[in-house]
Design a protein around this nucleic acid. Structure first.
Lengths: 192, 192
DNA sequence: TGAATTTTGAAATGATTGTTTCAGAATTAT
DNA sequence: ATAATTCTGAAACAATCATTTCAAAATTCA
């Protein structure tokens, strides 16, 4: 029998994700990747595939991680509007925490317009968040804590598109207080 | 005396901008540029400089064009809240019109985090829009058509960050109706 | 027209790109 | 231990990258 693969693939993908995140797909060279992952290019091609396949796996890794995090958080709250509020403030925290912006958003602008495969992955990720939010909104409406004429699907899209802009604003202004203000403003205006 | 430069620089920059817009900074090769601009690389380097300098000029060209457009539009309207409404619906139109997204936003995510010079250019562009919007909001408040406790600076940031997200949403879903709905929702919620 | 000067085209630069090759080291079950 | 198999490291691959070189063509004013 033969030997088995030596390195931890999940760990390697996380290293690769970190590089793609910082430099973008086109800004990342295979050398950047092998340096960060600490494996030889032959090993990389034998196990995880070429640059594009590796990138796809990074996206899947990133979106899966976020999905799990979201599902766990949902369990903590007993009331839907508390969960919504918390979600929005959490996003604001994440925005100001990593200066690079969201990997999914960066990729949406850089790669996705010309690549239907990657676009589909990001759309799925987006749809998951949309389902998550619209469900909470629907519950809040049913419980009478939000207005009866609220459109859950529309409001979910609205929330998602709003915090997407926070990432750009933070890259340009690097002002945490501004992001927190915007989050508070959104909560005040939409969820009461 | 010597001969004068043969090609129209402004026209060449517009061609270059088109390429950078579609492919991003790192995704664009000098060959892509010389092909599109229809000039030899030696001419390009002699007049407009290297890849980075050319990119800077493209950003300046893009932001200047937008600034002029914005200033012209402002004169047309007599009431501030009509100007605001029109601004928001115009943005929605632009979002669904070009499938590549906004050049400034793409660049903010791809290049700006590691490049302070380009970041400053984009920040200026952002600040201009912010000043434009907050001024309109301030006028609307003074005229009593918007609530007295409105914070013009905050609301301007809020509007900007919200429509930024529309670009991503449109890249992923390609649904014009959705964008129009979001614009209408924003007008309904914030400007009445 | 002719001398002066600049732009231009094509080729060449060395560096870097993504990917492949392959011999030898490493690991396994017998 | 041995034979079978797989992984690994370093080098090599052609292609493309951004940029430079330079002689020849083009344009100007006198």
């Amino acid at each position: 029998m033969a030997r088995t693969v030596a390195f931890d693939q999940d760990q390697a993908i996380e290293k690769a994700l970190d590089v793609f995140w910082r430099k973008g797909y086109n800004g990342t060279s295979m050398r950047d990747l092998t340096d960060a992952m600490q494996i030889n290019s032959s090993s990389l091609y034998n196990t995880l595939g070429d640059k594009h396949q590796l990138f796809v796996q990074c996206i899947k890794h990133y979106t899966r991680k976020r999905r799990i995090l979201l599902e766990e958080r949902a369990k903590v709250f007993d009331s839907p509007q508390k969960a919504l509020e918390s979600f929005i403030h959490d996003v604001a925290d994440v925005v100001v925490k990593d200066a690079q912006g969201c990997f999914a958003i960066k990729t949406a602008f850089e790669v996705s317009p010309d690549n239907k495969g990657i676009q589909a992955l990001l759309k799925d990720d987006n749809d998951f968040t949309h389902t998550f939010l619209s469900k909470l909104i629907r519950e809040a409406v049913e419980q009478g804590v939000m207005k009866k004429d609220t459109d859950p699907d529309l409001l979910a899209d609205y929330i998602i598109s709003t915090y997407t802009g926070w990432y750009e604003l933070y890259i340009l202004h690097k002002d945490p207080a501004k992001i927190k203000q915007l989050a508070a403003f959104m909560v005040y205006h939409l969820l009461r």
